[in-house]
Every structure is written in structure tokens, then in C-alpha cells.
Amino acid sequence: MTAGVPLTPAFVRGVLRLEPTARGVAPHRLPAWALAQAADPQLSMVEAQGAGVRIALRTAATSVTLTAHRTRVTYAGAPARPDGSIDLVVDGEVVRRTRTSGGTTTELDMVTGQPTVIPGDDLVATFDGLPTRVKDVEIWLPHNETLEIIEVTADAPVTESPLVGRRWLHHGSSISQGSNAARPTGTWPAVAARLGGVELQNLGFGGAALLDPFVARVMRDTPADLLSVALGINLVNSDLMRLRAFRAGLHGFLDTIRDGHPSTPLLVVTPLHCRIHEATPGPGAFDTEAIAEGRLAFMATGDPAEVPAGRLTLESIRTETARLVAERQAADPHLFLLDGLTLYGAADEAAHPLRDALHPDAETHRFIGERFAQHVFTHGPFTS
């Protein structure tokens, strides 16, 4: 007997929208109206990538199959990116992993910006040999690729899997999305969520954690028991605003979230250590010398002499965020601050350098997630 898994939000977790396509459904982590307001190809690309998105079901099936079509972006002249990972979790334990393949690849020329589209086949990922008992099964989609779900089938009936715990809604940058993590269950929010026993909804968007009002409204309107925002690095490397606008923007962002969640624990995380932007403003840029050597790396191009005039750095964002949160805490006892340097500081960079000068590697994602769980779920503001 073969049972089809309904492609609905009850079974596809971590999404805010399931878009019908010619093949099946495309998971999205933002609603269509938010993307229309952004009008930003970068955000449109990354919000459709499956960070925190998983297919969850309860079943006695011994075989589950996912058929999907992936879309990925690569960079001409840079080292080939590894294929994405699909992780199988059974009763809370990661038990299997398979690589993605085929699909549609867009290769970007980093000098001209011109794309080359390379078509490919659908992928079929079958997980056989599962225990015969009734169990909770999760198929975690790649955090850094887009998968259109064509179908999911099992060899026994399926029902909805219950939530694992409280609902944690988190917003951040590519670091929160999981850039350079090796697998979807290995991004630092996924690591922290598993250790904290919570149900993750990841609104980490590569290059797009920019204090956008529509993201605050999405967070306002999304059910959650725990809320967190990790803001700073994209504001610096995009050179989007000056200190005066940052103050008002962060106040407004938090005000909007509080309109829908007036007493939900809300954690503000200041930036992790990133040497190139600690005291040097953006904009960030590709390091052309590294690319010439076959490496993908980033650099800061701003002038530190302009910081007194309001150009943002990670140092100035940490200082202002701490001041602003302390100010608001007088009237908001459920607002909390976490210094990002406790998760990844200068000493950590010496031992675990950012290989592209911007993003943690797989091992670093793991210990950032473990530290977050220790500081926030075990002893901190999200203690149950």
C-alpha cells in the first residue's frame, strides 16, 4: 500500500506559504505580499530556500520517498558548491542523509552579473529500512537550495505529527539561514532548536536581514511562543543606513512585533564577531584577489573615518542595540538581550576562522547552536 503525504502546512512545517506549481508545491518562508513590497531578487531567492523547512508525519512506514525538483545558484570561477543535503530525522534523531542532484542551476558571473541557466532532472530520495513501529518522521529540506516538492509517498498510512514543543520564530541573516553549514539540521538555529526541544520557524534570509517593516509584520502575525531577532551584519555589509535611521528602524521593528506579541519572550541578539566589519563600515564586496585564487571570500570597503558621522559597524550596532534594549526593558519585562560575542567572539575566530571572512563553517554552526541553547534555553530567557 502506498500513501501520499498531503502537501499542506500541517505536513510541511517551517513555511508561511505553499505555492502551487506545475510540478507540485514550492515552499516559501514569506507571504507573497511581503515579497511584492520588497521587490528584491535576493530576498525572493533566499526566502524560497528551505532553511528550517521539513516534511513531518507520523507513520509505521518502513519506506518514505520524496520526489522534488531543485533550483540552485552557483558562481562562475568560484569553487563548485557542494550539493545540498536532505536529512531524515526519526523520533528526534538524525538517522540518514542524502545529497540533492539535478534540477535547475543558475550560474552567475560575478563580474557581469549575467546568469546562465542549466536544466536538469528531478531528484528522487528514498529512505528505506525504517523501523516498523509507529514513529515521527521528518524530512528536512536543504537550507541553501530551493526544492519544489512534487510528491511524498510512504508504504503505510500517515497522519500529522504533533509539534515537538513551543514554537520558536527566529529572524536573521545568512548566518541564521545556515550559509556554510553542511546540512539542514546543522544550521545553528536547527541545532539550538533540537537541544531546546522547540519547533523552529526560521526566517533567516541571506543578505536580507535589513529591518524591513514587512518582516516585522510577518513576525507580528505569525503564532509563536518564543521570538528572536539577530540583526546587524547585513545592515553593515549593505551599507543600507546610518546610525540615526538604525535607531528608529530597530525601535519600529520591535514595536511592530510587540503589536502582535505583547508579552511573548523576545530576544534581541547582537552581531557575532566578523573581523572585516568590526570597525570598518560597508559596503561589503567580493574579494577579487581570493576569487583569482579560486576562493570565494568577502571584504569591507568602507572608510572607518566615517564612523563618527554615522556609518555603521558591528561595534557601533552592538553598542546602540544594547542601549536601546536597556531603554525598552523598563517598560517591557519580556524583552531580552544576548551579546552575539558570547556565541562567537574574537577568540573563536582565531580557533575557527570564517573561511570566506563572513560565514561560519559546519563545526562553528554546531557550537554556536550549542552555546545559544545553553545561554537561552537552559539558563536564559527561553527556559521552560
Rank of each mutant, 00 (worst) to 15 (best):
L231C: 07
H251I: 03
R323Q: 15
L231S: 06
D212A: 05
H170A: 14
F336P: 06
Y75C: 10
A300C: 02
R17E: 14
T159K: 09
I150C: 03
R96F: 06
V198W: 02
A190D: 05
W33D: 10
A32I: 01
L243H: 02
H28M: 08
L296K: 10
R217N: 12
V325R: 08
G197N: 10
M299L: 15
V137L: 00
A346T: 01
V46L: 02
A279M: 07
N234K: 11
V164Y: 09
G84M: 02
L7T: 08
R23H: 01
H365W: 04
D287Y: 12
A208R: 10
T71Q: 09
R275S: 14
D239F: 06
S263E: 14
Q201M: 15
V111R: 13
T116K: 14
D122I: 00
V376H: 08
A346C: 02
N234Y: 14
T270H: 03
M45I: 15
T100F: 08
F382E: 11
E370N: 11
A192G: 10
H28D: 07
I276Y: 08
P360Q: 09
R275P: 11
A156I: 01
S228D: 06
G302W: 11
R70P: 01
A350M: 12
P223W: 08
D212T: 03
T112H: 10
P360R: 09
E278N: 01
I291M: 15
R17A: 14
T153G: 04
N237A: 01
V95L: 02
T74F: 11
E151T: 01
G129C: 05
E320H: 13
T378G: 05
M241F: 05
I55N: 06
V94R: 13
T159C: 08
G284M: 04
I139W: 06
Q329F: 06
A208C: 13
L163V: 06
F377E: 00
S384R: 11
A156Y: 00
A209E: 03
R242F: 09
E199H: 02
A182M: 11
L296R: 11
L200I: 07
T153H: 03
N202R: 10
L203H: 06
G204I: 07
T65Y: 07
P9Q: 14
F286Q: 09
S263C: 06
L343M: 04
A279S: 11
H170R: 08
R99G: 06
T105L: 00
G294E: 12
G52A: 13
